[in-house]
Each structure stands twice: as C-alpha cells, then as structure tokens.
Design a protein around this nucleic acid. Structure first.
Lengths: 205, 205
DNA sequence: GTTCTCGTCCCCCTTTTGTGGGATGGCGAA
DNA sequence: TTCGCCATCCCACAAAAGGGGGACGAGAAC
C-alpha cells in the first residue's frame, strides 16, 4: 500500500513514517508539509491513501482534500486531526474524505483505518461515529453569513460591512439576525466566540 | 544526553524517538503516555531533559511538571505543545518549565532547544519570546477587565454583567471602554476575537 | 507627603444594534 | 409548478453600546 503524508509538523511526519515503514506492505511514497504542494506530490507518487492533517497553514485539510479530488476523483483521503469537532468532521466528510481519525489514535487503529480505506471503504473512529449519529444537525450557516461573521470578528460595524459587500445595511442586519438565531446566541460578541469555536472564523497568531 | 518523553500521542512519541535517536549523543531513556506515570519513569531513568506534552488526559503538562520538580528540583522540563497561548506559556514557565516549544517547530529547533536546556539554560521560541515581551510592554489587562471580557464572550449585555458582578452598569461600560482601548479594538465582538487569540478567554470544545 | 492605577459611580449624548413587519427575484428540489 | 431557501431591500422602533465629562476612596509606588 502506497501512502502519502500531508502534515506540517515534522515530528508527526517522522512518527508516521517510522510506524508505517515498519509494517509489511506499507510504503510511504510522499511526505508533504503544505496543502499547496499536495497536488504535485500526489501526481508524482500516485498513492493509494493520503493521510491528511486538518490544521495546515494556507490551505487547510478540507480545502486540500477537495483539490486532490478535483485532480483525481478516486483519491482516498484519511483525515488525521488533533481535534474531533463535529462540524469539522462533517465538513471533512462532506468535502470527500473517506475517514477521520484523531491523533490520539493507537497504532493499531491507524493501521486498521488505512487498510479499510485502501480497500475502498470508509473509517470513522467508533466514538466519533456514535457521536455523529446522535448529532442533531442544526441549521447550516450560509456562505454570506460566514462572510459577515468573519467581518464581525474583525470589529466591522454593520455600515462598514454593507459598504464592503456592496449591499444595504438593512440586508446586513437581516443576515446577522438570522445567523444569531442559527448559532443560538444573543449578540455579535457571543457569535464571534461561537464562530471561532466552530472553526467558521479563524484566529491567526 | 538522556531524554524522557511524556506524550499521550503514539505518533508524536515515535516521531520524537525516530528523530532523536538518529542524533549522536542523544538517547531516549523513557517514553511515557500519562502524567501520572511520569514520576516513576523519571526516578527509574534519571533523564537530563524531559520533553513534556501540554495536553494530557489526567494530569496536564503543567501539573506533571510541578510534580517532577517536587521530586527533583533540578529537573529540566521542555514543554512541547500544539498551541502557543500566552496564558499557557506563562503558566508553564511559572510552573518551572525551562522552555516552551510548539509542535510546529523544525527538527533543528527541537535539537537546539534540547541542548540549550540540557546545559542548564532556557529556551523560548523566538516568535513566542517576542510576543511575550510585546505583551508586557503593552498596557496590561486588569483582573476585572478579564472577568468582564469573558462575560462579553458569553453574550452577556452590560446590564447583565453589572448584575452578575454586583456593580453599576456605568462601571461596566467604563471597564469595557478602557479594555477596548487597551486591546486596540473597536467593539465587543472584535474584543472577543482578540481575547480568544491572546488566551485571555478560552474556547472549549 | 504626592502621584498613580484600579475600581467604583453619576450625568449626558450620539450612534449602533437587533427585532418586528412586509416584499421581491432567483434557483433548486419535491 | 409549487414550495422553500437564499439574498436582497424598505420602514419603524426600542434597547444597547460606546464615548465624553467629572468625581471619589483605597492602596501601591515614588
């Protein structure tokens, strides 16, 4: 089985290489530090499975997965993330990933997930699968709403947001009113915290 | 140099072992998955440096560091964390750690930090050191202001904050006005984002 | 002593925010 | 096609937010 690794942490890459190369029949054919370079590495090494980190500078794991799938619709991506946030898992699976594993997973779980996916199957850690099954999917946040949320987090007033997007201030207020309800919060400050928690808005260093 | 590793992620442990064992003069004498077992491993292997993960189930990195220092006040601990939150770094250094390194660090940075600390020195990633220095130079956020910031992030209105703290609404407004200036932001939404970024307010799963 | 910051309180003022109502056009799914 | 959702716009209104002024007591710092 040919495996490609996408992770910006050298320590994770070398840990994965060290564990996987020990295994009979597994070969790491590419290691890549950034989402942006993944398509080229993929084309050059045609791996059976891609092990993809979620938190990457630049393109994140989801975006990179989508690009790989544009390039090769049969690409098999296993997301390997530090976190297990429901919305992130949902987004990863929606984006076409074949599985989702936390970095707390044991070596056996990792190997099991890899072989399941190489065979064309899917893999979700049991704990995650259960949680997702019981998850009541709340109303989804639209593109426009996400856009406005990120401007709110930057301290923009409704008037400024309207100007930036070229729409009326009343429309902005309407969007905000809707998104506050969807997030189950009462004002833009709490919406900011919730958007950051859900990964809708990023906080850069 | 004898190194002990404390990290619950097998992939990080094997990555560290793989990278460190390649190096002349470095030997990994203990690997440990939980803070609770660290003291025993430490006593059995007497390492020169302990590489400590921050996010551990049970005892976290700071608590484990403190226990190791009770046991051996000359223990040298290098925190190896996924994050770089100001308050966490502060707590780690206050707790007696000799250094703080993010998991995004390169192999060279890691080796450099390890040898600096083995020699009895300290190590803070340059970016982090600058940021901490910058924060100390900037105006400091008072206790009351932090308290109010976290209530703002929870969506509380000024009136509610006043009631919760048993003070007048005008006083709350005064505090908010001050803290907005100190953070260099224009409203409570942006203040929320900034407070989260600086680690003043935490976002839990 | 004096000066400084912190936390507290009051007044007044403008601007912003958030919600309610109602309305239109587009677009995709049932 | 009809229905629902998205995005857009309008109006009106109450509440909230944020800034300005001035003031006071406690305690730390000089």
């Amino acid at each position: 089985m040919k495996v490609m690794i996408v992770d910006d942490h050298f320590v994770v890459r070398s840990g994965l290489v060290a564990s996987l190369e020990l295994e009979e029949g597994i070969e790491v054919v590419a290691e890549c530090e950034a989402g942006e370079s993944a398509p080229d590495f993929y084309a050059a090494s045609s791996p059976d499975v891609v092990l993809m980190d979620m938190q990457l500078p630049g393109w994140n794991g989801i975006e990179t997965t989508e690009r790989l799938l544009e390039q090769d619709p049969s690409a098999k991506v296993l997301i390997f993330s530090t976190f297990a946030r429901d919305d992130e898992i949902q987004a990863a699976l929606d984006g076409g990933a074949k599985g989702y594993l936390q970095k707390t997973a044991s070596r056996d779980e990792l190997l099991g997930a890899l072989s399941r996916i190489a065979e064309g199957g899917n893999y979700l850690a049991p704990a995650i699968a259960n949680r997702l099954a019981g998850l009541k999917l709340g109303p989804s946040i639209t593109l426009r709403e996400r856009e406005i949320l990120s401007l709110i987090a930057k301290g923009r007033a409704n008037k400024e947001i309207a100007a930036a997007l070229g729409i009326a201030e009343d429309t902005v207020k309407r969007h905000i009113s809707n998104v506050l309800q969807k997030l189950g919060v009462s004002d833009r400050a709490q919406a900011t915290a919730e958007a950051i928690r859900r990964g809708i808005v990023k906080v850069e260093e």
